[in-house]
Design a protein around this nucleic acid. Structure first.
Length: 863
RNA sequence: GGGCCCGUGGUCUAGCUGGUUAUGACAUCGCCUUUACACGGCGGGGGUCAUGAGUUCGAAUCUCAUCGGGCCCA
């Protein structure tokens, strides 16, 4: 049982990674004795790079999974991959030097699949290196038939429930990606643009989008606006294009903005859509799907939006319609993937009806950690105006399982038993109601959130032979996708099953770079978890994740945190090595408290307090608190004090004292390896491997032994510790070697057991009852605010001042008699002794000794 | 424009159901080779708790305002 001098994570971590039997982390579908703990793990997008933000979140998940497993839960920590999406399409085009339309649809989709498979492999590898206790028997891949058939079946089910419909409706459109996108995919950024003042016949209007003049369908004013009241209901001519539009009134028009007259276009922005619907205005499409001007733009047809804007402004100026331009700060909606400004186009799309009440109700029934994150979902839910557009004009995604009859206007939605199915590759096995067998396939595909919003259903066994185990217990995710993933998952779970998807949602923060900014390639502050593993270790990385901050808050990545993490392991290893050197032929068996020394019991009292507080912190998902407590105990209590105090016993001849110290060390090491297991699975396993049977990860979480927690023992132990450390300091201050003996140490108090004081100071110790034969001078009166404040309230301040002016000796004498009399503003007041504390100083009376005051007990050192 | 979070020694942070001397880490300075560890031990210096007002005997903690930072949304 040799313990190497140094802990080398680059040997130990791969050793355990490669030898662990991962089936110990599998969820048992048949087990009904243990409570289930199913985690709705986020399925990352397979970019091939498992980045630090993912890693932080996965560390949190793994802390929970390992902890719950040790506490006796039947834990499922599944792993999914959210494969579909545009970035992969773009990457494939780049790698193969093609555009998606140059190869057959299916071939292109295969190229995407191939790239994704490789990327998943790379990310899986990082996860294994980080020591996650993933349940690989519950892995899912959204592009695989097994999964996307569920996406398609969910489509069919919601269609049957009448929660899904097809309609022509304005949608957010990215002209670069040439697809519709949902509101959740729109990001806003402020840009400087110009507000153009134009003449519409006699009316002056202000617009930031003159290129949409061709799409102008009305002019609106505020009905209360006295300046324009007479124009209400009249008609004006649109400059350059010459079509007539009506002047309508709407209270949402801000009279203070521009001229107080706005033009309504189909569509310039979301407000236009509101007005368009409210006033039943006609539709004029001036921009096509590629972001080019259409026929109705006349001579501007075929121009891009910026080109058209420039040309129209020139023409307006030339013809005298433009009379002013002012700079305008504007928030522009952009595609979250490519940052292209979005347009609002009216297109035939598939939508899911949004029942905001249902979502709110479910959200109220879910525990939000931290709680304030719930507000973000509520704000989003309460401002929903349109339904969720779920169709996309892309290739690499779940096909919409629909055909259109070529002979009638019948829509054929695939039956569940036909799924998975790609309508562009297969014809429906049935004829249309009209008898025709000629169909046109729906070429649109589903929004990828349609795949990922059923993860909770998927992992809980929906549509399998297993018993359905919804709700899951925990959804861990970032706050950046509350309005998407969290919102859609709740919506879909409620719609399909009527159940909430999870009991609790744990929201993690973002990882910031060392400069305090969000990590991004352009700022050059990106750190890959693999770098940290290479330079330090996975356990050190995990420790950074644990102590960086409480979940929900953004966490800064700092190398020095990783360094101090690895120092902790060095320290722990050194403690471990020391303990093991004394435990070589140790056989563990239970020991009675009576056989333990005060210092041992002091250690046990602290250890059990530690277990209690760490357990509480873990239950509250406060990993930073939990780990800091473990670290504090290990370093301050175990290493700096306990070990120093028991060394003399361990090296000495007293067998019973030695045995007690060994027992204590053994239990401390065993307990610490279990407490560390969720955080540092490799290190804990290495520790445990020499003292326990099998993997620490299948053992139980330590239980608190309440009877070992004893305030009296802690006080005595603390006193011994203080004597030892004060004597240590005394020797240091007097230039003595720390193991140099003193002539004698006299303790004026009571102490049942001086063994460890003796050992730690290497000096004779005498405990003497009573007062030392030199002066014991009260030097300070300390009013006890906690007692005086609530008792005397308004008078408190005067009492305190009066006390401070009194002679400390007089007060001390009065305390001895049980009553303190003090003169406050002329009145004599009686106070209880508990109202003050007296600080005393021990003054040696000419003897050649030094006196230390340790917690009020005089300790005399004779050199 | 609305909502949410935050402002504590040089840096990061704990405390924030009000109570005496504000926690810890890193950095810094001084001392120390002590049979686990110098990636260590012991000790020191360094804080108008963003600002202002209010409530209170008493405010880092509660209330309001102001300033500053971040995030989400319109």
């Amino acid at each position: 049982m040799t313990v190497p001098k140094e802990y080398d994570p680059h040997i130990i971590e791969p050793k355990w990674r490669d030898s662990w039997n991962m089936s110990m982390y599998h969820f048992d579908w048949k087990d009904s004795t243990r409570p289930q703990f199913i985690i709705d793990t986020p399925p990352p997008y397979p970019t091939g790079n498992f980045h630090i933000g993912n890693s932080l979140n996965w560390c949190y998940i793994d802390f929970v999974a390992r902890y719950k497993r040790m506490c006796g839960y039947n834990v499922m920590f599944p792993q999914g991959w959210d494969c579909h999406g545009l970035p992969t399409e773009v990457k494939v085009e780049e790698i193969h030097g093609i555009t998606k339309n140059e190869v057959p649809r299916e071939e292109f989709r295969n190229m995407c699949r191939e790239l994704t498979v490789g990327n998943i492999e790379k990310m899986r590898n990082t996860m294994l290196n980080l020591g996650f206790s993933t349940d690989w028997s519950n892995e899912f891949v959204t592009m695989e038939p097994e999964y996307y058939s569920k996406t398609q079946r969910s489509f069919r089910k919601m269609y049957d429930m009448d929660r899904l419909y097809q309609s022509e409706h304005p949608v957010n459109w990215c002209p670069r990606c040439e697809t519709a996108i949902a509101f959740a995919e729109v990001e806003y950024d402020s840009r400087e643009t110009k507000l153009n003042y134009l003449y519409f016949d006699g009316l002056q209007i202000a617009t930031s989008r003159p290129e949409l003049l061709a799409a102008c369908v009305a002019v609106a004013i505020n009905p209360e606006d006295e300046r324009y009241k007479e124009h209400l209901g009249s008609t004006v001519k649109v400059p350059l294009f010459g079509h007539d539009v009506k002047v309508i009134g709407d209270k949402d028009v801000d009279p203070a903005f521009g001229t107080g007259v706005v033009m309504i276009c189909t569509f310039g922005d979301k407000q236009d859509v509101r007005w368009w619907m409210e006033h039943s205005l006609p539709l004029r499409k001036a921009i096509d799907k590629s972001g080019l001007m259409t026929d109705i733009a006349g001579k501007y047809k075929g121009m891009s939006i910026p080109e058209c804007k420039k040309a129209i402004i020139e023409d307006l100026e030339k013809e005298g319609h433009l009379f002013e331009q002012k700079p305008l700060e504007q928030n522009v909606g952009m595609c979250w993937r490519c940052s292209t400004p979005i347009e609002i186009l009216s297109e035939r799309q598939w939508f899911i009806k949004i029942d905001t009440d249902e979502v709110s109700k479910a959200s109220n029934d879910i525990e939000w950690l931290p709680e304030y994150m719930k507000v973000r979902l509520d704000n989003w839910t309460n401002t929903m105006e349109w339904d969720w557009c779920i169709s996309r004009q892309r290739l690499f995604a779940t096909p919409i399982p629909v055909w259109y009859c070529k002979h009638c206007d019948g829509v054929m939605v695939a039956k569940e038993e036909w799924m998975p199915i790609d309508p562009t590759q297969q014809q429906p096995p049935e004829a249309c109601k009209c008898g025709s067998t000629e169909f046109e396939a729906e070429e649109d595909v589903l929004d990828t959130w349609m795949d990922s919003s059923i993860t909770a259903l998927h992992v809980s066994g929906w549509l399998t032979d297993h018993e359905m185990r919804l709700p899951t217990q925990l959804r861990p995710q970032g706050h950046d996708i509350i309005r998407t993933w969290a919102f859609y998952t709740i919506l879909r779970s409620m719609a399909i099953t009527g159940k909430k998807p999870w009991d609790a949602i744990l929201v993690n923060g973002m990882v910031l770079g060392e400069d305090g900014h969000k990590m991004s390639k352009s700022l050059g502050n990106v750190i890959a978890p693999e770098e940290v593993i290479k330079d330090y270790s996975a356990d050190s990385f995990r420790q950074w994740a644990a102590i960086g901050g409480s979940p929900g808050s953004d966490v800064m990545f700092r190398w020095k945190d990783v360094v101090s993490a690895s120092r902790f392991f060095t320290k722990m290893w050194s403690i471990y090595r020391f303990a093991m050197s004394h435990l070589e032929d140790y056989e563990h068996c239970e020991m009675d408290v009576s056989e333990l020394k005060i210092v041992d019991r002091w250690l046990f009292s602290n250890l059990n307090t530690l277990v209690r507080s760490v357990t509480g912190s873990m239950d509250d998902y406060q990993f930073d608190e939990a780990f800091k407590a473990v670290r504090g105990f290990t370093w301050d209590i175990l290493a700096d004090n306990y070990i120093e105090l028991v060394k003399s016993r361990l090296y000495g001849d007293d067998e019973s004292g030695k045995k007690a110290a060994k027992y204590t060390l053994y239990v401390a090491i065993d307990t610490l390896s279990r407490l560390l297991a969720p955080f540092a699975p490799f290190f804990a396993e290495e520790m445990f491997s020499r003292i326990g049977n099998g993997s620490v990860h299948v053992h139980s979480w330590p239980k608190v032994c309440e009877s070992m927690i004893d305030a009296e023992i802690e006080k005595s132990g603390e006193f011994i510790k203080d004597v030892a450390s004060n004597v240590r300091r005394y020797k240091s201050e007097h230039g003595m070697a720390l193991n140099a003996p003193l002539e004698k140490i006299e303790i004026y108090g009571s102490l049942a057991d001086i063994t460890d004081v003796l050992g730690a100071t290497n000096s004779p110790v005498e405990v003497i009852a009573g007062e030392p034969d030199f002066e014991h001078v009260p030097v300070n009166v300390k009013p006890n605010m906690g007692v005086i404040g609530p008792k005397f309230r308004g008078q408190a301040k005067d009492i305190i001042n009066a006390l401070l002016e009194e002679n400390p000796k007089k007060i001390a004498d009065e305390i001895a008699k049980g009553k303190i009399t003090v003169k406050v503003k002329g009145d004599m007041l009686e106070l209880d002794p508990e109202c003050v504390e007296i600080e005393k100083e021990v003054v040696s009376a000419g003897r050649a000794v030094d006196v230390l005051d340790i917690g009020g007990v005089p300790v005399v050192i004779v050199r």
